[in-house]
């Protein structure tokens, strides 16, 4: 059935955008929680744990996201665990985000000078207290810019899940194009939607990085 590009099409794409944003948020939350745990393990854990986490990070970072997604969708269903596209997308994107966020945040934790640990140590703070009150607040400040920057990557990378049939913004665009044969209208609208989400994030990320280089914010 051929229809022409109109208000209904925009609504259809907007529906896809909501799934894109939802999947991004879910990825960021899951990836954030595990990323923080992994970052702490990588920076401060016992040697064997550091090695395991470092291995995980390198393995995931060296694998194309699409392969992770195919593994979660086709691979696991072949092995008898069927995940619907949404679950497969969320799982694989979270695995991907965990690795990258863990790596970013580990760098931020390690960027805090050893003398800060020592000063807190000399004041009788426990290891947990040193982390909680001295190291993590400073690391958090350095991490904000790159973390928001990585959120842009997450949003854009959700488009890869179109390839397993998850109907987010990109997949919605493909479907609509098949119905309307008006690729310019369709994909320019899709691009505009991505831009509307990503640009404010990029802008915010740059702002945060500037503030950091201008000295500690109060």
């Amino acid at each position: 059935m051929i229809q022409s590009f109109g208000w209904q099409s925009v609504q259809f794409l907007f529906h896809g955008l909501i799934w894109t944003v939802g999947l991004s948020v879910c990825t960021f939350v899951c990836g954030g929680i595990f990323g923080l745990i992994f970052a702490l393990a990588r920076a401060l854990g016992p040697r064997w744990l550091q090695l395991i986490v470092a291995g995980y990070i390198q393995l995931v970072q060296a694998t194309p996201l699409l392969i992770l997604i195919f593994l979660a969708f086709y691979g696991l269903s072949f092995a008898g665990f069927y995940f619907p596209p949404l679950a497969a997308a969320a799982i694989s994107l979270s695995i991907y985000a965990t690795a990258f966020l863990a790596d970013i945040w580990r760098g931020c934790i390690e960027a805090i000078p050893r003398t800060q640990w020592e000063a807190a140590d000399a004041l009788a703070l426990s290891r947990i207290q040193r982390l909680r009150y001295v190291i993590l607040p400073q690391a958090f400040r350095i991490a904000l810019g790159p973390t928001v920057g990585f959120m842009v990557q997450i949003v854009k990378n959700t488009s890869v899940t179109a390839l397993i049939g998850f109907v987010e913004l990109t997949r919605a665009g493909q479907l609509l194009n098949n119905m309307t044969f008006q690729p310019f209208h369709v994909f320019l609208t899709v691009a505009a939607f991505y831009f509307a989400v990503c640009y404010p994030l990029s802008w915010w990320s740059e702002k945060l990085k500037e503030r950091k280089s201008a000295g500690p914010a109060h």
């Binding site: 800060q116 000063a119 703070l125 009150y133 400073q138 400040r141």
Partner: peptide
């Protein structure tokens, strides 16, 4: 212990630097 490089906590005000250990420890 007082160090050559002061090692104050840059994200905390002077009062917070001073209060931190008495408060949490």
């Amino acid at each position: 212990m007082v160090f050559q490089s002061y090692n104050l906590f840059p994200h905390l005000s002077v009062a917070e630097n001073i209060m931190l250990a008495p408060r949490v420890v």
